[in-house]
Structures are given as structure tokens and as C-alpha cells.
Design a protein around this nucleic acid. Structure first.
Length: 311
RNA sequence: ACGUGAGUGGCUCAAUUGGCAGAGCAGCGGUCUCCAAAACCGCAGGUUGGGGGUUCGAAUCCCUCCUCACGUG
């Protein structure tokens, strides 16, 4: 049997979760979430996780698996995710991958550099130097050891600069060389389906959903996590829907303003997701105008699967 | 009706008092190979309410009309 993975992508609030549930039910399989935030426990309302009933019904991987202060990384996700995929294949199931985190999807579909780990100490050192001497300082270091990569980066984008330096530090080779050498042979075939919405309708839905989240207790959810002792600075809490609430908690802005900002940032996020996914020509897009279109899309995908796998 | 104030990009406001009309937000496009819901980059948009005048030069000064706000009737 051909080793096929169904992959559902799209911006936030596009109906990925519903569609994936329908598909998984029909295919009698499990769902692999490729979402950099739903993987954390306690952050449920703000990340629009599937409900407990839904996860009880269909098994989900990478949802609610980590404490918010855990430093997860994409390399781990690639390894863990592929493991689950293999496991499902061995049970004769077609894995369904769902997610809006483009890089997480990429890690599964194409792989990322896998021969260079991280060096937290060195990273911390670079961060310190950056704080002390500025972006230009670390950028200049990169320009010396790896001018070619430096050329394609801006000093302001310090995160990439640091990663490039880290790769060089660990491997002694510039990061672009790893990119060139990287290859992955696998017989797994990822069929990618995207949910495309008219921008205006999607934005309206986003606003509605943010209001719903607030009604459902978004603020209390955040306060609860903070009371548990997790610091605002942890990466999991540097998330749209939560980070905008800090200024309200500090009484710098009104709740109404904070909600406005959440809506704005969610719109911006959706836009960036479109930008990311748009350039991948392997994605087959479906136009969606309302949630009721999803079941038809599910059928199209199943039909496409039949064609491609001969099921 | 009279008085006062205001009118600048879709919105909120700048323009050193007469010297190239700018910014934030919204919008749109892009980058992305270990924090990615992150971190960045860019683009577009204005006959300065209309008309006239003064001036080498007007968003800015003068006249007039329109609109809005507040005050008085």
C-alpha cells in the first residue's frame, strides 16, 4: 500500500480542525497536530484547540503534551512526528496532519537541517552580546565567519543571525552548506490540502471568534496559567491572544483595547500564514465561503485519495 | 441667525507659524531550514472641504461658499 499522509493546512480560523475531524472519522485514523501552540497544556481557549469530546473521539497527537515552559523545537517535532506517522502506517492507517504552523509542516514534509543540534549556552551568550552591543555586533561576527549567509539577512533579524552563528559554531560549516547538502529520501507522499477564504469573510470570522474566546474565559485562562507560576516571558505565552492581555492586566489599556489588539494581531497572523503557504505549489487549494462547505471538501479529498492510492 | 472652533490618505493626528505634505493604525505584498501564533522587510494611498485672492512660494495669510462641533438666541 502506498504510504500517503493527508495534510490539511490553512490560516487560523479556517476550519482546519473541523475538517480534520471529519476526515479522521471517515478514515478511522488519528490526527497529528502541527501547531506550535496547541502542543502546550492549559492554553486551550486562546489557541482554539479541539474540545475534549473531540479528542476523546479521535486520538490527537501533539496537543496538550508539554508544560508551557518547555523549550520545544522543530527538530524534535520532525522526529516525533515521523515516528507517529510510521506507527500509523504500521497499523494500516492513513495519518492526517493538521496545522497552521508552516515551519512545522515543512519539518514533516521536507525535513529541516537534522545534523546540527542546538547549543543553548552559546545561544545565551550571543543573546547577551546582542543586548549589550546591539544587533550589528552579532551580525558582524556572522559576516566574518559566514559572509554568504550574512548577505541574505538583515542585522535586525537577530533570531536568524543567531541561528546561523550557532550552526557555524557547532559544525564549523556555514548554514547554507547544510541546506545544500540536506537531502531526505522517503517514500512517504504528503498530499497537502489548503483552505482558502475570502479575506473579508475570514477577518469577520476571526473577530467573531475572538469575542467568543473572551466570553469563554480567555482572560481567566491566562491568569490561571500565570498563577501556576509560568512566567510571561516563556515562549508559549508569547502568543497572539495572550500577549495582548498583559497591558490590560498591568492596567495600561482597557479590556476593549486589548481585544481590538488581539483581533488585529490575529488578522496579521492569518495574513502571514497565507504568505507562507501560498508559495508551496504542491498544495491543492479549496475555496471556502462558510463552514458548511467543509463536508463537501472532505468528500473531494477522499475522492482524491482514492485516485492516488487506489483504495 | 449670530459667535467661536475645526475640516489634511479609510481612521487618528503631525507639519519648527509662509519654504519639497509626514507619522501611527487599518490595507496590500514579501522573507522564512531548531523560539515560527516567533523574528523581520517592503508597497500603496493626499488637487490639504470647494472656489477665488495675496505671494517667487499657501495646509498655513485674506475673501467667499459648504460641512461638522460647541456656545448664544
Amino acid at each position: 500500500m502506498e504510504r500517503v499522509v493527508v495534510t490539511i493546512i490553512g490560516p487560523t480560523c479556517s476550519g482546519k480542525t473541523s475538517l480534520s475531524l471529519m476526515l479522521a472519522e471517515e478514515l478511522q485514523t488519528e490526527i497529528i497536530s502541527a501547531d506550535s501552540r496547541q502542543i502546550f497544556k492549559y492554553l486551550s481557549i486562546g489557541t482554539a484547540k479541539p474540545t475534549k469530546e473531540e479528542t476523546d473521539k479521535i486520538k490527537h497527537h501533539f496537543i496538550d503534551t508539554l508544560e508551557p515552559d518547555v523549550n520545544y523545537n522543530i527538530s524534535k517535532f520532525e522526529i516525533d512526528g515521523l515516528k507517529v506517522i510510521e506507527d500509523l502506517f504500521s497499523k494500516n492507517k492513513i495519518p492526517v496532519v493538521v496545522g497552521g504552523s508552516g515551519l512545522y509542516i515543512k519539518a514533516l514534509v521536507d525535513g529541516i537541517i537534522n545534523d546540527v543540534e542546538t547549543d543553548d549556552e552559546y545561544r545565551a551568550e550571543l543573546m547577551k552580546q546582542r543586548e549589550e552591543f546591539g544587533n550589528e555586533h552579532i551580525y558582524n561576527i556572522l559576516r566574518e565567519v559566514d559572509p554568504q549567509s550574512a548577505e541574505n539577512m538583515l542585522p535586525q533579524n537577530w533570531k536568524r543571525v543567531i541561528r546561523a552563528l550557532e550552526v557555524f559554531h557547532i559544525s564549523g560549516k556555514p548554514i547554507w552548506q547544510h541546506h545544500n547538502e540536506q537531502k531526505r529520501d522517503t517514500d512517504i507522499k504528503f498530499l497537502q490540502y489548503g483552505l482558502n477564504w475570502d479575506r473579508e469573510i475570514l477577518y469577520k470570522n476571526i473577530e467573531k471568534r475572538v469575542d467568543q474566546m473572551v466570553n469563554d474565559g480567555l482572560l481567566a485562562e491566562l491568569q490561571n496559567v500565570l498563577e501556576m507560576g509560568f512566567d510571561r516571558s516563556v515562549n508559549a505565552l508569547n502568543t497572539v491572544g495572550y500577549k495582548e492581555l498583559y497591558d490590560f492586566i498591568d492596567e495600561k489599556i482597557t479590556l476593549e483595547r486589548a481585544i481590538e489588539l488581539i483581533k488585529r494581531d490575529t488578522r496579521r497572523f492569518a495574513k502571514r500564514q497565507f504568505t507562507w503557504f501560498r508559495r508551496d505549489e504542491r498544495i491543492k487549494w479549496f475555496d471556502v465561503n462558510s463552514a458548511s462547505d467543509l463536508s463537501e471538501i472532505k468528500n473531494s479529498i477522499l475522492k482524491d485519495l482514492e485516485l492516488k492510492t487506489g483504495l
